[in-house]
C-alpha cells in the first residue's frame, strides 16, 4: 500500500477528497494539494510550530501527521479564522495592533496555537501565555509584543466583553 490512499477531509468547513501517497505530510497536503499556503513550513520536525493547525479543535503540528491520518477529521487552518475576506479574527486584529508580527512567517502557527489556548483559558496570566506559546518560535518580532497581543485579544474576546 505505498500506492495512493483515498482521503476525505473537511478543511475550514469545506469537504475535500483526494488520493495521496501515505508518506505525504499533512502540511504539504494543505499547501500543495489544497493551495492553503497560510500554513507555513519551518523545521519540519516539530520544533518551530509554524505549521500548527487545528485538528478537531486541538492545536497540532501538521508536519508531524501524515495527510492520510486526517481522513474523516475536521481541520482549521489560518485561512479559516476570519469571518470573511475583508474581516479579521479578533486575535488577528490584536496581533496587528500590538505589533505582534514583523515578517509574519511564524504568525499563522502562533494564531492557531492560541485559538484553543484562549478557548480553554480565556483570562491567562503572562506566565500562562508564555507557556502556551512555548512550542512556537519567532525569530524577528520577539515575544514581548506577541504576549501583549494575546493579552489584548483575551481582553476583547472575554465572554463578558460582548454584551
Amino acid at each position: 500500500m505505498t500506492s495512493p490512499v483515498e482521503l476525505s477531509v473537511r478543511v475550514n468547513g469545506a469537504s475535500h477528497q483526494r488520493s495521496v501517497e501515505p508518506r505525504l505530510l499533512l502540511s504539504d497536503f494543505l499547501r500543495h494539494e489544497l493551495n492553503l499556503t497560510g500554513t507555513h513550513v519551518g523545521c519540519e520536525h516539530g520544533v518551530c510550530g509554524a505549521c500548527t493547525i487545528l485538528m478537531d479543535g486541538e492545536a497540532v503540528r501538521s508536519c508531524l501527521i501524515f495527510a492520510v491520518q486526517a481522513d474523516g477529521h475536521e481541520l482549521t487552518t489560518v485561512e479559516g479564522l476570519a469571518a470573511g475576506d475583508d474581516a479579521l479574527h479578533p486575535l488577528q486584529t490584536a496581533f496587528r495592533e500590538a505589533h505582534g508580527l514583523q515578517c509574519g512567517f511564524c504568525t499563522p502557527g502562533f494564531l492557531m496555537t492560541l485559538i484553543p489556548f484562549l478557548r480553554d483559558n480565556p483570562t491567562p496570566s503572562d506566565r500562562e501565555i508564555r507557556e502556551g506559546i512555548s512550542g512556537n518560535l519567532c525569530r524577528c518580532t520577539g515575544y514581548q509584543n506577541i504576549v501583549q497581543a494575546v493579552r489584548l485579544a483575551a481582553e476583547r474576546m472575554a465572554p463578558e466583553a460582548t454584551p
Binding site: 516539530g46 510550530g49 500548527t52 485538528m55 486541538e58 492545536a59 497540532v60 503540528r61 508531524l64 501527521i65 496555537t113 489556548f117 507557556e131 502556551g132 512555548s134 512550542g135
Partner: peptide, 12 residues
C-alpha cells in the same frame, strides 16, 4: 505531563 514537550505535541 506538562513537562512533556509542547501543548501541540501533547494533543497528538
Amino acid at each position: 505531563l506538562p513537562f512533556v514537550a509542547h501543548p501541540q505535541i501533547r494533543s497528538r
